[in-house]
Write a protein that binds this DNA or RNA. Structure first.
Lengths: 343, 343
DNA sequence: ATGAAAGCGCTAACAG
DNA sequence: CTGTTAGCGCTTTCAT
């Protein structure tokens, strides 16, 4: 059995080092203020006692918890989950480097027949000073979270553009989906293809429209026709399968660029059913570089989530610093993970 | 612009309700102590002011942060990541129901040529009273975290059995992998198969050995021979592909049960290469019900992570309650997600 | 059932 | 450069 005695406090360290409590506090927070020998003595006492500042007390005093809140969205489709996992890891790591931790919360259960509370969980956490700020990820169309948080003066940064509000005042970081899809389209074009199909989502999603725009832009830039080369369907394997079949039967594209890995998997199914083989002669590209893409050898657009996390935390630090915030919006370019379905 | 004034405090509420601060505190923490009419008046003041207790002050006073720490493991293979995502969500939800939040942290970067600090991140968090307890997930063989946390008297519960220490004193929850694989094997047997192969990992993993034992036990119970029907390989698609080919060439199994979805995908590759088709006539079963299994229609053993989370939080509540802890170890049975590769 | 007093451990001001 | 004083907002005795 070890020491069941309570953890050491500032006062304990001060006594042991023969200085005042304040000096110990300075040794920790403003070491420059101390004479080297005093600092060394205090440090020795700290080490000897195994002292760690009590967060609660510091938090109460400084009004800063060094915690950022992240609300877990209610488990979306495959691809998004996977991206979320990678993003959370990246965020935790980026936060750690500036001395922050990530506090996870959920919006709570959505009652049958009720709309989910858009602000679920946010308000209490902020008002109770449990977190200093939030990272908001669900900035889908018309999301009221950003508006409400702004109104309540809760500091936050968003992963995702404020599509609906070009003059939004909060910092944001987003991935340039259009650029990613354009790069994918050019990649397929470079393989010698001209009839490159776009398999996208049904209208209504800003993200989906953005990705489609990348394909369209690249096609136009290459002087290629887009007529009859696109389909807009639900984000399921089966919808992708059927849409690919329809396209093959009509305009017979020789390459596919898709809005998601899920749709791309559907395309692969159709190709297999017809005895066709995805590859440089018949490339298929997905989006999100999910687990599925990795296992199935699917070329896919990969979001730079690690960079996103770093930029978000940087913007957050900016926001919480006493100085005027500098960053406003940052758009990062995805990369292309090239695999067997296109090489 | 809204009120930039500071959040209301207990004193504000007390003044507005015409009672003492103490009474407000009681209204929140021990409502039974108040007369109904007083309680109502206080409640009104709370609502009117939009008061939320300051966590830092409460935390300092009660020495409880109502935060559980969870260390993110350094991103493992596909299947594990996916499971982690689902587990984290479940944990956040289970914690919420008992008034806890989940604080994520990482072990920090592992320096080149250095061993990762087994206690990385744990010690500071606990000593600084930033978290009340931990959920430990990486209880792989000989993991020193459990030992160290016990020595430091840090409350924690483990997801995973203490394989190496049958008398471990901490509460744990685990999934009965052997039972899951046995159920999978019986499922294949029920389809009419007798030569059921086991595609497992190389020795050295307790989890892997456990899963294999489930297959072996089920085979023996069904009076089936296991001779030449097993392979032990690395957990990659390619290793699974090759192993399946070897098995087909030698003992020609008519069904495959695998230690992971990754290996099962390898089997599917081999079958396809040979013009064979997974299904009731040639079943393939994976483990973990990953994204890949869901998209590819792979039957897979699914861990009850939501239950695991609930049990873990229950054990934690027990541990932190003033009463004597009751639970010690809980073993939960997985289910079988049956899909096209076996039906 | 309600109020008064004390203090959790820390840091921001100021004084020496 | 170091020490003193005060108080962050809350809960826990204890008294009324």
């Amino acid at each position: 059995m070890e020491n069941p005695r309570p953890p050491a406090t500032l006062a304990d360290v001060a006594e042991r080092a023969g200085v005042s409590r304040q000096t110990v506090s300075n040794a920790i927070n403003n070491p420059d203020l101390l004479r080297p020998d005093t600092l060394a003595r205090v440090q020795q006492a700290i080490d000897g006692l195994g002292y760690t500042p009590n967060q609660a007390a510091r938090h109460l005093r400084t009004r800063s918890s060094r915690l950022v809140g992240l609300r877990l969205t209610p488990a979306q489709e495959f691809t998004a989950n996977m991206a979320m996992d990678r993003f959370v890891r990246a965020l935790v790591e980026a936060a750690r480097e500036v001395g922050y931790h990530v506090l996870l919360f959920s919006g709570g259960p959505v009652e049958e027949g009720e709309l989910p509370d858009p602000l679920g969980g946010y308000d209490d956490l902020f008002r109770s000073t449990a977190v200093d700020a939030f990272v908001v990820t669900d900035t889908y169309l018309g999301n009221p979270v950003a508006v409400e948080l702004t109104r309540r003066r809760a500091p936050f940064v968003a992963f995702g553009r404020p599509w609906d509000d070009p003059v939004a005042s909060h910092p944001w970081v987003d991935v340039d989906g259009a650029a990613g899809v354009a790069a994918a389209t050019e990649h397929v074009r470079d393989l010698g293809h001209e009839r490159i199909a776009w398999l996208g989502w049904e209208p209504g999603s800003r993200i989906g429209e953005d990705r489609r725009a990348g394909w369209h832009r690249a096609m136009v830039a290459a002087g290629l026709s887009t007529a009859g080369l696109e389909a807009a369907v639900a984000d399921t394997v089966d919808a992708g399968r059927q849409a690919a079949a329809r396209l093959l039967d009509t305009t017979a594209p020789t390459g596919f660029v898709c809005a998601s890995d899920t749709l791309a998997v559907g395309v692969l199914h159709t190709l297999r059913e017809r005895g066709l083989h995805a590859g440089p002669g018949l490339p298929v590209v997905g989006f999100d570089d999910s687990q599925v893409a990795q296992v199935m050898g699917l070329t896919s657009v990969r979001q730079p989530l690690e960079e996103v996390a770093v930029e978000l935390i940087g913007a957050l630090a900016d926001l919480l610093a006493p100085t005027e915030p500098t960053t406003h919006g940052i758009l990062l370019a995805p990369t292309l993970a090239i695999r067997q379905t296109s090489v």
